[in-house]
Design a protein around this nucleic acid. Structure first.
Lengths: 229, 229
DNA sequence: CGGCAGTTTGATCCCGGTCAAAATATGTGG
DNA sequence: CCACATATTTTGACCGGGATCAAACTGCCG
């Protein structure tokens, strides 16, 4: 393992208040790992022996139901902590984390968690902010699923994705990792057929462009309007 | 305000590790308040100036959508903390808390939060366990809404209610606070008509009994089976 | 150039929402 | 204690959004 640079961590919220030496210590305790696209970082129900920081890529957090259906609960963008079961005093991971595209993550043994919380000022606050954000996101998911139609849910899901992991390209803003119709359906509680039909019709109206595993939003504003009604 | 007894807090998880004097101090800083049925304890978006402990009754946490629809995100049973925006480093309450029946709560100014966390061992851990549980509950809500039919969602919602706030009565287990068809529909993302139809049909099969604002589960086991399929 | 993973499109069906109206409780004031 | 207003529940009729089933099509990879 080659030596990690301090500039990796210093701009990230959980570590932004720390000095050079502290960051050095943290990095020296870290294990870095490359995760290939589609591979799992950890599995639902497994003992939470480590917690992670995503340096690059996107992680998809997925739950599998008793009858084998997949439901995506959130996407984690680069720069965020994940697998932080300890923060919720859980001993096992509540869901499976899978790389949506090739990803790079640091990790530390969970035994260091309490250490991080007490030693590094701002670490606890920032992680709980993340927890709070995720709670908020799940909450809006529940509300959307209770009150809105499929079209609006999908529109909003796409907008959320580009706001979190969007990349400006010529035709608009694209989702920066490969994503299929099926993936979108698992995020929104629908079927891939319905997603396909909607994307086709949106493409006809110039709202989006899509190739295989790739979605580009050409007209976010118009899509946002669709997401309300 | 009459003096509060220490035995109120000592059995509750967030305070269970504390000594008599510590509990005395905590109680002396508390304000106690009776909330009449249907009244709000705090409103969505309001500044989170206090955090609460529910001593008696049940709190319904509700969000209102832009177009005026209500969605219930969770119910809080007696003995739990709520309004703990500070734990998620939020400055405002994310939802409205309303008494489902007459309720009694203690509260403290949010400024004391950090104090509680550092002074009282186990307080932080226990509150984050609560946060974790609520995250888990929202997660299963999302999964249920994505993968299950109305009948199963309602069955499970009722089972969750009795496991959390159930009271043994002659005919079975009743939900210990007044609850209407509309309330159930707001918990499950359906309509009161559908809830009414299902309850009627379940009543025909002896699964439940219900009067106005009252639901009794006569056969939890059978209902659990319905909740799967 | 197979073969597989992903996408598209069509046809059909049914769950559960919506609209409507009546029946039943509960509460209130005279 | 009754009459009336209001909240809750029930039931019926209808219909439409999306799921489901099915089949063809299109890239992409080895």
């Amino acid at each position: 393992m080659h030596k990690l640079d301090e500039s990796l961590l210093s701009p990230l919220p959980p570590f932004s208040k720390l000095g050079k030496t502290q960051i050095r210590t943290i990095l020296d305790q870290a294990t870095s790992r490359r995760i290939e696209s589609g591979a799992a970082v950890f599995h639902e129900g497994a003992l939470a022996e480590r917690f992670f920081l995503l340096l690059d890529g996107t992680i998809r957090v997925v739950k599998t139901t008793a009858d084998g259906e997949q439901v995506t609960s959130i996407h984690i963008p680069a720069g965020q902590l994940f697998g932080i079961a300890k923060a919720l005093s859980r001993t096992t991971y509540p869901a499976t984390a899978r790389a949506a595209s090739e990803a790079l993550a640091l990790s530390w043994p969970t035994t260091l968690w309490d250490n991080f919380v007490t030693e590094y000022s701002g670490f606890a606050t920032e992680t709980y902010k993340t927890v709070g954000d995720r709670l908020g996101e799940l909450n809006t998911r529940v509300i959307e699923m209770s009150t809105q139609h499929v079209e609006q849910r999908i529109a909003r899901a796409l907008l959320r994705l580009i706001s979190q992991s969007g990349r400006q390209v010529e035709q608009g803003i694209e989702i920066s990792f490969p994503i299929t119709r099926k993936d979108v359906s698992e995020m929104t509680g629908t079927t891939l057929q319905t997603v396909s039909r909607l994307l086709s019709s949106w493409e006809k109206n110039g709202l989006v462009t899509s190739k295989r595993k790739k979605i580009i939003i050409c007209n976010p504003h118009q899509l946002a309007i669709l997401g309300e009604a």
